[in-house]
Amino acid sequence: MKLKNKWPKYYKKDVITHYCPGCGHGIVHRIVAELLEEMELGKRAVCVNPAGCAVLAYKYFDIDMIESAHGRGTAIATGVKRARPDLFVFTYQGDGDLSAIGTAETIHSANRGEHISVVFINNAVYGMTGGQMAPTTLVGMRTTTTPSGRNPEYDGYPLHITEVVASFPGVAYAERVAVDGPAGIQKTKKAIRNAFQCQIDGLGYSIVEVLSPCPTNWKMTPRASFTWITEEMTKEYKLGVLADRRARE
């Protein structure tokens, strides 16, 4: 019998992550590590990981990493890429990191068309800090800071940051996918591959938003979290390619 899925080269061998059972981070981490290997990027890759659940990502990815202050990832990545354009630079960020405190950095790095790729994990809550409302929390969704459900009158509506940056000419590729089952996971890998290829081809800024399960804070089983994404979350956050300017000269 032959092993079909050997351990990803750019994933620290036999690491056990701190993520909760059924957390989407684990799946997306594996996908990113596989792509770094398949696309031969690991040697020149620098990843900027966020403050948030993925703050310890440098214990998992086996590539050079910089841990950013909360929300500053795309600014740090801008500095890295501008100083060393030969490096493959991507950020790995959560929804609070990227679309709350880091909104300005997110919007302006995208608008400048920085040659970086952004892997944006949207799990609709602040996970690391215990499940508070995030800009992406759905209407009516209970979190530890919306105990009776998010009320737009009071808390505003879910923020669609990827649609915002998708409208910028500097953005070469923007897609939203979902880790909500085998098919979604394969689409997620394909989308991130497209984004990484964008940077390799020098086409400019790319971002993939991944709707990702957070069973612990959603108070659901991992399997139910997948279903909740498919049935509820994608109603608010439509899947698909939001911008594709890769063909432009």
Binding site: I16, T17, G26, I27
Partner: peptide
């Protein structure tokens, strides 16, 4: 199974 496993 390996696709959906978050822990590799």
């Amino acid at each position: 199974c390996s696709l959906v496993c978050p822990e590799v």
